[in-house]
């Protein structure tokens, strides 16, 4: 049972088959084997949120999941979500509000914010937005502009007015 393991999964809508070492983190598999570098690696122990990605519809830490655990799973990254225009309004709001400077945390922020907005049928308060993104660190913006951007999209998407 040592050596490589065979895995089959769906990544951004495409079937992927690979042989991986058990110790390979899912985020490294995506970045180094598939070239999907939109998902970043920060702390590698689950604190910073830079490696956020979706597995079977839920946002998880790509550094705290092994590629072998994703066997049979459906994985979506920033690239896939961008391609199917699921984040366009968030990306636009982040741009207009200057909700990023270096951009390192942005992919994780976008995925985490999108998860909150998709789960809600009422507009979240700023405190709820802050609580939901509390596991995603940004060292540039001071968060205000990020919360502004998410709150605006929440009002537009859920509140129904521009």
């Amino acid at each position: 049972m040592t050596g490589t393991q065979s895995i089959t999964l769906h990544v951004n809508g495409e079937a992927v088959h690979a042989h991986v070492e058990p110790r390979l983190p899912l985020v490294d598999f995506l970045r180094e084997h598939l070239g999907l570098t939109g998902t970043h690696v920060g702390c590698a122990h689950g604190v910073c949120g830079a490696c956020s990605l979706r597995v079977d519809g839920r946002v998880v830490r790509g550094c705290l999941m092994l590629a072998v655990q994703a066997d049979g799973a459906t994985v979506e990254t920033l690239e896939g979500l961008s391609e199917r225009v699921a984040l366009a309004d968030l990306q636009d709001a982040f741009h207009r509000h200057n909700a990023l400077q270096c951009g390192f945390c942005t992919a994780g922020m976008l995925l985490t914010a999108a998860e909150l907005l998709e789960a809600r049928d009422s507009v979240p308060a700023r405190a709820e937005i802050r609580a939901h993104i509390s596991g995603n660190y940004c060292r540039c913006t001071g968060y205000q502009a990020i919360v502004d951007a998410v709150a605006e999209v929440a009002a537009n998407r859920i509140g129904g007015q521009a």
């Binding site: 998880v60 705290l64 985490t112 939901h132 995603n136």
Partner: peptide, 9 residues
């Protein structure tokens, strides 16, 4: 308990 992404796993 931790953050939403940790609670998802």
């Amino acid at each position: 308990v931790a953050h939403p992404a940790i609670r998802n796993r």
